[in-house]
Structures are given as structure tokens and as C-alpha cells.
Amino acid sequence: MKHAPRLAWTAVTAAVTLAMAACGSETPAPAASTAGGPKLAVVATTPEVADFVRNIGGDDVAVTQIIKPNVDPHDYEPTPADLQAIATAKLVVKNGVGLEEWLDRTIESAGFSGTVVDSSQGVTLREGGHHEEEGEHAEEEGEHAGEEGEEHDPHIWHDPRNAKIMVTNIQKGLAAADPSRAATFATNLATYSAEIDRLDSDNAAAWAKIPQTDRKLVTNHDAFGYYIARYDLEFVGSVIPSLDTSAELSAKQLTDLVAKIKATGTTAIFAESSLPPKTAEAIAQQAGVEVVAGEDALFGDSLGAPGTPEGTYLGAERHNTQVIVDALAG
């Protein structure tokens, strides 16, 4: 994962300091909720986490989402607006597992004095993804969340069972920050958890129609390990041989991936919405398979546009399953 250059980060910090000083005590209060009283000001890092907070918090939270749709979270550089939002929030909710490497220094620069909720707490993590330096498979299961590091796969939400843990952590964080609305948050959690269960059941039913020998997946980067493990798929490889998006295939790795696609009878490479499909298209041409891209690109690190079904966690995950199953079913 990449870090923002020191000079750029200094400039951002200076800019937000000046902006906050200019605002002084005139920062507007959060809007009132439908139940009365100000909404709880929450900053959420990723589109997935922000959607979780909106579903659990409902009309009682005012959510500022830092990373917008189709922006790569692995290579994000915070803006002055991000620091201002964090400085005035009561709660910051993150994905965790090292996905937001930029967050700690952003919080420090913003002078944030509230609570940080790590939604990954209690999730069993995969270690090292599907790729090691030598190209060998890593262990499927890792340590429990809380021991963050690059060796752990941060794409935990792709297993709906993990999503249920994440929203439970978020509900606890919201209730602790605003005890007067704890009952409402608990009711919202129960409703949304049932929807996640339905998603998991529907995914399993869709995959049950695909023969085990045809469940082969090649993606832009190694973002679907939890999904693959949950629905018993075979990971053939990824265009970017890494859990993040900064790595590149060597000539040998490219040749090996093409050979493996041919040898396994894999029929498609799935592009991702937040990554360009150019390299995937080149590999697909060499391997003689199709590239699933454009409107059918998978949501690996992001969600779709706001206001669309894919702009929600549930909609994006349903999209992913439908696209993959339809392509593999021919």
C-alpha cells in the first residue's frame, strides 16, 4: 500500500488548520433527527462501512463518507475536507485490518477526540491472501481481527457472515455514543442482519446451480478471498498479484497466469469497477477467454453510484454473484 508523500501531507494539514481557524466557532451543528435532537455525527471511511452505518443509524446519524465510489481505498490520500469532517465528528468508523493505512495520521492531524470503531473486531481473518512471494497458496484462516498488518486480507465484507459482525460492532459503537437511541439502533440491526442472512442464502442458492468443476475465478486483484472461501470456489489467479492494488505482474507471472487459465479451463476474467481493465483484457486475449467488464465489472473494493441498487452493500454483492454465476454458466 502506498503512503501520501510527506510534502503533500504537510500541505493538507496546513490547509485544514487554516480552514478550521477561519471557521472558528461557526461550524454548523448537526441536523436534527426525526426523533428530535441533533443527529450523531459519524465519519465512515469506505463506501461499505458508510452504508452499514446508514442502515444501523437510520435517520439518527449524519454520515460523512470519506472514500467515494470507485476510488481505490488502497491508494487514498486524505483531503482538507476529510480532516475537517473528522475533527467535528463524534465517531469514526473504519473497516480495519490495515485497509486505511492513512487514517491514524489523519485522526492525529485533525485533533479528533471522539471514538474510533473498528468494525473488523471479532472477524476471523485470512492470512496473506492467495498469493505469496513464491506464488504458493497461503492459509485460508488467520488470527482474529485486531492484529492488523499487510499479511491479513482486509476485504472481509465479501463474506456476509463477516458483514453481520461488522454491523454488530457498528451498532455497539453508535449505542455507546448515543445511549438515548440505543433501542432504535438495536431494532435497525435486527432488521438489517436479517437482510444480510437473506443475501447469504440467495448467494448459496445461486452457486448451487453451478457444478463444482466450473467454479473458477480470475479477478483484477486478490479481493475476493472471503467470498471464494464462503461459496467454495477455486481461485485461479488475479491480474494484480496482491491484496492491494500497487503490485504488478512480472513477465513470468503473466505467462504463468495465462497458462493456468488455459490449463484449468477457466472461461472468464472479471474486471473490477475501481480498476482499469486494460491488463485484464490483454491477458484474456492471450488466454482466449472473455473479459467481464463495463457495467458488469465486479465491486471488489467499492460500491456503485449512490441511488443505484449497486450503491448499497446488499445490491453490490447481489450484482457480483449474478454476474459471476451468469458468466460461468455460459
Rank of each mutant, 00 (worst) to 15 (best):
Lys2Gln: 10
Ala11Pro: 10
Thr13Ser: 12
Leu18Arg: 14
Ala19Pro: 10
Cys23Gln: 15
Pro28Asp: 11
Pro28Ile: 02
Ala32Trp: 02
Gly36Pro: 08
Pro38Trp: 11
Pro38Asp: 14
Val42Ala: 09
Val43Glu: 00
Val43Gly: 07
Glu48His: 11
Val49His: 12
Gly57Glu: 06
Gln65Arg: 13
Ile66Arg: 07
Lys68Asp: 10
Val71Ala: 13
Val71Leu: 12
Pro73His: 06
Asp75Ile: 12
Asp75Ala: 14
Tyr76Pro: 01
Pro78Ala: 09
Asp82Pro: 06
Ala87Gly: 10
Leu91Phe: 09
Val92Glu: 08
Lys94Cys: 11
Asn95Ala: 02
Gly98Pro: 06
Glu100Asp: 06
Trp102Ile: 03
Asp104Gln: 14
Ser113Glu: 13
Gly114Cys: 02
Val123Pro: 04
Arg126Gln: 03
Glu127Cys: 12
Glu134Cys: 14
Ala138Glu: 12
Glu139Ser: 15
Glu139Cys: 12
Glu141Ile: 15
Ala145Ile: 05
Gly146Leu: 04
Gly149Phe: 04
Glu150Ala: 15
Glu151Leu: 09
His155Ser: 07
His155Phe: 09
His158Arg: 00
His158Tyr: 00
Ile170Ser: 00
Gln171Ile: 11
Ala176Cys: 07
Pro179Ile: 01
Ala182Gly: 01
Ala183His: 13
Ala186Ser: 13
Ala190Arg: 03
Tyr192Val: 05
Arg198Ile: 03
Asp202Tyr: 04
Asp202Arg: 08
Ala204Met: 08
Ala205Arg: 10
Ile210Pro: 01
Leu217His: 08
Ala223Pro: 02
Gly225Lys: 10
Tyr227Pro: 13
Asp232Phe: 12
Val236Asp: 09
Gly237Gln: 11
Ser242Met: 08
Ala251Phe: 12
Lys252Ala: 15
Val258Phe: 08
Val258Arg: 03
Ala259Tyr: 10
Pro277Asp: 08
Lys278Met: 13
Ala280Thr: 01
Ala284Gln: 05
Gly288Val: 08
Val289Asn: 03
Asp301His: 01
Gly307Cys: 10
Thr308Glu: 12
Thr312Cys: 09
Leu314Thr: 10
Glu317Arg: 13
His319Ala: 08
Thr321Phe: 07
Thr321Val: 09
Val323Phe: 05
Ile324Tyr: 04
